[in-house]
Amino acid sequence: MELSYLIYQLIIGLSYSMLLFLISSGLTIIFGLLNIPNFAHGTLYMLGAYFTYFFLHSLPGASFVVAIILAVIAVGVIGAFLEYVPLRKIYERSHALQLLMTFSFILMLDDATKYFAGTDFLSIATPKLMAGSFTLPGDREMPVYSLFIILCGLVVAYLLWLGLYKTRLGKLVQAGTANKEMLSALGINVPRLFTLVFVLGAVLAGLAGGLAGPLKAVSVGMGETIIITIFAIVIVGGVGSLKGAFIASILVGELNTFGVVFFPSFAMAFTYILVILVLLTKPEGLFRIK
């Protein structure tokens, strides 16, 4: 197989990786600081897609970007509510109980979506500017939108890196992820910080949902089809590690791409094989935070 084909697939795989990163970055930050395995993170991603569709079709003349921004705000508000009302009650409880609580969010949000939006598939059009593709040598096409997703992933990764490492807030989040007691010792309003971080995670999930819209059938349950992959990424990368989520997203995305090209019959098992291999050699993920 020629080299140019491999590079081509590498870029194709990267666009999937970056979508995965957009979703998993939010989860890993929440999980790292709040120590809550938010099983409903995929459902927030679904809501991002639904809200984008809704704003795109209900506001006259709304562009894709405007719709996504509004959708992200809406998902952020829902995230704030989830953190402020039910989740706050169970911060000191076991992971199992927290999982069950976030699972109940999935049930409620899925059914509420079904009630308001129906069960028919919805489809978000690719914005006109990005609907085309570049033709590469060998008569291969590179969709503009795939490149756009890669760009979005990189920009978000850079902004998150800036935010986490260069601002006071980010340093607090980092310190809190490594050691909870330190936050209260510093006299920080911990509950407010937690709400803020949960909203940030929800916003990232909502953004990913909106951006995934042009690639997907928007439907109830689309969150559940991806959540296990996202958890796998967070765990492989190391809970709370942004760098870990970034690297693990690339691993999963590229493994999926090249796996399908070379070993298509194992496609269902790729992610799980990766999880097993990584965790058996690195029991706390690739990048451990401590």
């Binding site: 009650k89 409880r93 109940s104 969010f105 009630y115």
Partner: peptide, 18 residues
Amino acid sequence: YWMFWYGLLLMLLIMYLP
């Protein structure tokens, strides 16, 4: 819409009978 009511029940149980 059983999922909604079921989810609500779960949430309330966890909140009040942890």
